[in-house]
Design a protein around this nucleic acid. Structure first.
Length: 716
DNA sequence: ACAACTTGGCTTTTT
DNA sequence: GCCAAGTTGT
């Protein structure tokens, strides 16, 4: 039996808790993955059937890590047959397994954000609504919210609402119709359809409820209503839900996550046990203090405080810089410093609020020859050449994917335009034909000229030899022949105006090919369909190879669940972080603050926060105001980053008129509302936006932003 | 049908 | 500052 000495008391209690509902409130870095893996390992070591275990994570990366760690504890033989996956993967698996049995096609395609967008635009056209008034993104987000509440079009229509609501309903209905016609499901459908399937079919429900004797859910605070219902449904018979989460790390409200699911766990399961993990094994006390200071400003949270046995460590540092260029330069220098101190490059991370901020950091790394990887942003498979190729491949897997036909038929150009494609599509849909059938018999399509019929036939002939052996040939070969047959390569080299760019795009295709190879080596054995499905369900973070020794740059959202020796949390300015879109809603503001907390708690040993006095926004330059998250933050003294002559900055006076400078001076006596009287020991900037380090007798040195600190000058 | 050009619109975060 | 959609001309 596994020895439990490696666990602390509450961890051990969670791991050994008898079957039954259990909520583990696990603070950042408190060893929640450890608890989950040990729990599973203990169950297996105790003779539990691996097939009775269902563990849900939010990313494939987390699932993979958990599998590996369980295997390391009990060996791969014992752990064979468990379900450890994301909600979405588990649902796909279940749907593929069961849909056939209830007379529905298990061969659906998963539509990603891009496909959803394209489809919604077509719905708008069909409904004769102007895109101006009904932005596809907005309608899609309403549809997504509806689905995450388990509302189909009918339920959505039943909600009270005016004219606008009625139009959205129509779009929702059209959109669902479009998905069905293309034999496709979107991300939200995966969950929704699984819930419906389980609810409607007693035999299926019974089967899974009987099977899943242990349901474990990671990041429980990030579940939406549909996922929450699904967990209840899965676990209904054995009622052994092992939920792990942290309300302070709830950062997905915008996509329907409800912390309420976590906070009301005890109401759902009155016999639930709740265990808190508050000992942190990751960060220094200084980092924890700073992070706690930020998140504790939130009104809506369960009070908890992380502690560590580790020493205080270096103080958290706030860097005030001129502009993003300097910010990047400084970060790059900081990375070099850490590397010189023996820290691995891959243990240094740059975290930002929006992907748009990554560019200067990338440039700074190139200038200094620092290897880096960017996680997310314009994702690999969002690139044009990849999506073009994917259109062909998806057509081979799903012969009803008319959306992909459109794309494949237009890149490269082959004499079929918008009008002809619409005719082909309408015809195919009306008669329930596959794409290939329509293309082969294009002469049956009304309103098509002889030229177009010939073009359609040619496309069909190009596709059909590929389509035949789709499931048997090796994925790599298939992709290779698609690439050759489609003329996509020539398309890139032919239209190239920028040679380097064309080169890059060809390289991307090569990378795609090697991804195919890698997939085949993984031995999944599900051919092209399996490969495409994996791609659809993969996040950018999942694609990131953390074995490579490179500085990593990513959004704060992608950073959740990761840890680094050194973290540079950049762009801490009002309007950027917290983001402008969240400023008028307190709930969203609190989410931003939690996001800040998540970012800060990624750091093990060093944490740097930076803000820029000036930042280009919308191509216009704007003055940067330090983020409210910095106000009063317990951190080290101001950093002497600039030559002295630049340490004082002019601030425009309100309205026209001369600029005023109100310098604070080292040695000046000030008063702080909370810390009392003190003396300035360092200054950066001037006037309202200045940062000062003040020594308070008995309170130590605090770095303060004048603007928020409520600092008053004392005479004399 | 398609390519070159112009306009305008706007940006969170992601399974 | 960028990209994507719309408009024009061949």
């Amino acid at each position: 039996m596994l020895s439990l000495d490696a666990l602390n008391r509450p961890q051990r209690e969670a791991v050994t808790h008898p079957a039954g509902p259990l909520l583990v409130l696990a603070g950042a870095g408190s060893g929640k993955t450890r608890v989950l893996t040990w729990r599973i390992a203990r169950l297996l070591a105790g003779g539990e059937d691996p097939g009775s275990i269902l563990a849900i994570t939010f990313t494939n990366r987390a699932a993979r890590e958990m599998k590996e760690r369980v295997r390391a504890l009990v060996g791969s033989k014992v752990s064979e047959g468990m379900w450890i996956s994301t909600f979405h993967s588990a649902c796909v698996r279940l749907l593929r397994q069961e849909l056939g049995r209830v007379g529905r096609s298990p061969g659906f395609t998963i539509f990603d954000a891009d496909d959803q967008h394209t489809l919604m635009r077509r719905c708008l056209q069909r409904a004769q609504l102007a895109e101006r008034q009904y932005a596809p993104a907005l309608v899609l987000s309403m549809v997504s919210q509806a689905k995450s509440r388990l509302e189909g079009p009918a339920e959505f229509a039943a909600r009270p609402g005016g004219y606008q609501h009625q139009r959205i309903y129509e779009l929702y209905r059209l959109y669902q119709e479009g998905l069905r016609e293309n034999h496709a499901l979107d991300f939200d459908d995966l969950i929704l359809e699984t819930v419906l399937l389980m609810r409607e079919h007693t035999d299926i429900r019974r089967h899974y409820q009987g099977r899943f004797r242990h349901v474990l859910v990671d990041e429980y605070q990030d579940t939406n209503f549909a996922q929450y219902e699904l967990v209840k449904l899965w676990a209904a018979q054995h009622r052994s839900v092992f939920a792990v989460g942290d309300d302070d790390q709830s950062i997905y409200r915008f996509r329907g996550a409800e912390v309420r699911n976590l906070l009301s766990f005890e109401a759902d399961y009155p016999d639930a046990k709740v265990i808190k993990l508050e000992e942190n094994y990751r960060s220094t006390q200084n980092i924890l203090d700073a992070a706690h200071y930020v998140v504790s400003q939130n009104l809506y949270r369960r009070e908890k405080r992380l502690w560590t046995q580790r020493p205080a460590g270096e103080p958290v540092l706030v860097l005030a810089v001129e502009d993003p260029g300097q910010e990047a330069e400084l970060v790059a220098r900081g990375v070099e410093e850490r590397v010189a101190a023996g820290v691995a490059l891959s243990q240094c991370a740059v975290l930002y609020r929006t992907h748009a901020q990554s560019r200067p950091f990338e440039e700074a790394c190139v200038r200094r020859g620092l290897p880096y990887s960017i996680v997310g942003g314009v994702g690999f498979y969002a690139r044009k050449e990849i999506r073009d190729l994917l259109a062909y491949l998806r057509l081979l897997v799903n012969p009803y994917d008319y959306l992909s036909l459109r794309r494949a038929a237009q890149v490269p150009r082959r004499g079929l335009g918008e009008a002809s494609l619409t005719r082909l599509e309408e015809h195919g849909r009306r008669n329930g034909l596959t794409v290939l059938e329509v293309l082969a018999r294009a002469e049956d399509v009304e309103g098509l000229g002889p030229r177009q019929v010939r073009a359609a036939g040619a496309l069909g002939e190009l596709l059909s030899p590929l389509a035949t052996p789709a499931l048997t040939t090796s994925v790599r070969c298939l992709v290779q022949s698609t690439l050759d047959g489609s003329g996509l390569r020539d398309e890139i080299t032919g239209e190239a105006t920028d040679l380097a760019e064309a080169q890059g795009r060809l390289e991307n295709l090569e990378e795609f090919l090697s991804a195919c190879e890698e997939y085949e080596r993984s031995g999944d054995g599900r051919g092209l369909a399996g490969f495409l499905e994996g791609m659809a369900l993969m996040t950018d973070g999942d694609r990131w190879d953390d074995k490579q020794d490179r500085v990593v740059m990513m959004s704060l959202h992608s950073a959740k669940g990761l840890e680094f020796d050194t973290v540079f949390l950049v762009g801490l300015e009002e309007g950027l972080f917290p983001h402008a879109r969240s400023l008028d809603d307190n709930q969203e503001l609190e989410e931003e603050r939690r996001l800040c907390y998540v970012g800060m708690t990624r750091a093990k040993n060093r944490l740097y926060l930076s803000w820029a006095r000036e930042r280009a926004l919308f191509g216009r330059r704007a003055a940067g105001i330090p983020s409210r998250f910095l106000a009063g933050l317990p951190c080290g003294p101001a950093q002497p980053l600039f030559p002295p002559e630049r340490a004082s900055v002019h601030r425009p006076a309100p309205g026209p008129g001369p600029e005023v400078t109100v310098p604070w001076r080292v040695g000046e006596r000030v008063r702080h509302p909370r810390f009392g009287g003190g003396t300035i020991v360092a200054v950066q900037g001037a006037g309202e936006t200045a940062q000062v380090a003040v020594a308070f007798p008995g309170n130590g040195i605090k770095q303060l932003l004048v603007q928020y600190a409520g600092l008053e000058r004392k005479e004399g």
